[in-house]
Design a protein around this nucleic acid. Structure first.
Lengths: 332, 332
DNA sequence: GTGAAAGCGCTAACAC
DNA sequence: GTGTTAGCGCTTTCAC
């Protein structure tokens, strides 16, 4: 049987309160009893049960992370950095893949609450999420990352998607492109929408009119991106801005299949700067999100909310950065 | 304040035992009281606390998953499928990235135990792991996935790595290649070692001698694979078998940098069949692991161990499959 | 079919 | 500096 605090107390000849205090470094304990308790604990290989401790009023030291899909390298990288930071701070991460499905999201939130996680990190793009609102009403620590929910007072860490879209389009414009297609993920996802808006503004500032025909919407997959880009190609663009690296890869494939060389015949700019962008041929020019920084910041934010009871919510907007590699060049 | 079982009991005019029974569908409860309890619960939005329930002797319904790194698409995909299956069965997943670092692994195992997870899934390649042995001694449900530990009696799900290496090399041999390099991940990782052994046997069966010079060891990264392949190239191989897709991508990059065309001048075969293999140019010929099946099976295995107290441990070996795409062809 | 009560392992007043 | 004790929210045995 696993030893409990009682076993340690008995063997060390002290009370459970004392044992508890040495493990929590609370109260005032003499060095002598402290080391005795520690010795006995080590001998019995005693480790305090976090579930008992949680029930007795302390934290569970676990965080929930709601993301669409780990297979998406952007979210895998985000999850990795979130987990790293959480672990550094003594928290564990419960991962929940929602596929941006409202039902799944609601279900997971429910579960996480029953498990009494200390906070919930939300990176899924579901809009209009009552379960989320409820959480916030009930003062459960929540923070958004890489997504937005303007109506809610909730701490948020994201990249300036609008600026990213703007900068992608501006760069392409600078290179002399005039017919620039855009392949977007579902426009119901806030980040995707903002990127397209940024793109649109850059075009309009350059005196071009935004054409519906140059926008193709896709689900999140290489195949989707490929199909979307293929339809776009009929409009004879000289460049394509894809709202994430996965879609950009689809676009690259579509171009190759259409016999177009990249960047010779078609320039492509992606978004995210995941591992994917480094392995394409040519390497992908893309808008980098500071994924690591986002992960760290959002964890720090939520932990502050957990520990202090009256914090000022904040919205951290990080700036994306254009990474020039080989998939975009001057228009011939 | 969140409602507790006492609140429900009081309002429903029954005892807490009764409420507990209706939520657990145990004992015999009249339809009348059942529905009354349910109604009140719904009105108060009552959800049983899993931490209290766990302390009172039930499961926590959470599993730990130890993996090297979520950024590695193979493990991201594995984690996704594991999470899916776990969720289907009512379990949550706590993800732990160990970077194959023994210290981190030990630390995580410790933490997971303190959190009283119901079982621990191990996909990291750390050898000789005392913490793991201890777990098994203490009858904590443990299962290995995509890794091996022959000395231990522990349920395992993996692919036949040896057969995979053999089949990769055989295919290349069949295509007429005679000088086949191999780039491996650290040979301390069981799966990697087995793949190289399979490769070696295929060579020897074909009457070739295994040359040390044709083996390059790399860390797990595109750059590592690239560097390893670059040294290999000096031995003028006509084909390279890379022990995973990430390394294969590195090899493709090295080849291109050396002015070699793929598959014209150099054939390349990878391993894993992650999303990466589909996006290279040319698409990568690789050995597919049935990642989804592995994830599902290992979850089912561990849940059986959790629920039944006397189970026969088993070792499930799935067969890898050669996926022919464009990165390997007949030797000219 | 339902309830009383002990107990899961720990924490935090409060008393000494 | 250390101990007593009353919970935390639930499960479960046993009695009715």
């Amino acid at each position: 049987m696993k030893p409990t605090i009682y076993d340690i107390a008995k063997l060390a000849g002290v009370s459970t309160a004392t044992v508890s205090k040495v493990f929590n470094r609370t109260g005032n304990i003499s060095e002598a009893t402290r080391s005795k308790v520690m010795r006995i604990s080590r001998e019995l290989n005693y480790k305090p049960s976090m579930v008992a401790s949680a029930l007795a009023g302390k934290n569970t030291f676990s965080l929930g992370l709601l993301i669409p899909d780990l297979v998406n390298p952007f979210f895998a990288e985000l999850a990795r950095h979130v987990e790293d930071r959480a672990h550094e701070q003594g928290y564990n991460l419960i991962i929940c893949n929602t596929d941006n499905d409202l039902n799944k999201e609601t279900q997971y939130i429910q579960l996480l609450r029953q498990k009494s996680v200390d906070g919930i990190l939300v990176a899924t793009g579901v809009r209009d999420d009552d379960a989320l609102k409820e959480l916030i009403d009930q003062r459960v620590p929540v923070a958004l990352v890489a997504r937005e929910m303007s109506v809610l007072a909730v701490s948020t860490v994201l990249v300036d998607d609008f600026a990213g879209g703007y900068s992608a389009a501006s760069y392409l414009l600078e290179l002399g492109h005039r017919r620039i297609g855009v392949v977007a993920e579902s426009l119901t996802v806030s980040s995707s929408k903002a990127r397209v808006k940024g793109y649109r503004l850059a075009l309009e500032e350059a005196g071009l009119t935004y054409e519906e025909g140059l926008l193709a919407v896709s689900d999140f997959s290489v195949e989707g991106g490929k199909a979307a880009a293929a339809t776009l190609l009929q409009e004879a663009p000289t460049a394509i801005f894809a709202c994430n690296d996965v879609l950009a890869i689809g676009a690259m494939q579509a171009a190759k299949e259409a016999g177009l060389s990249i960047p010779g015949d078609l320039s492509i700019v992606g978004f995210d700067n995941t591992i994917l962008a480094t392995i394409t041929d040519p390497p992908m020019t893309t808008i980098a999100q500071p994924i690591r920084a986002m992960g760290h910041q959002v964890v720090d934010l939520i932990i502050r909310e957990i520990q202090e009871d009256q914090v000022i919510k904040q919205r951290v907007v990080l700036l994306p950065e254009l990474i020039k590699r080989g998939s975009a060049q001057s228009r011939k």
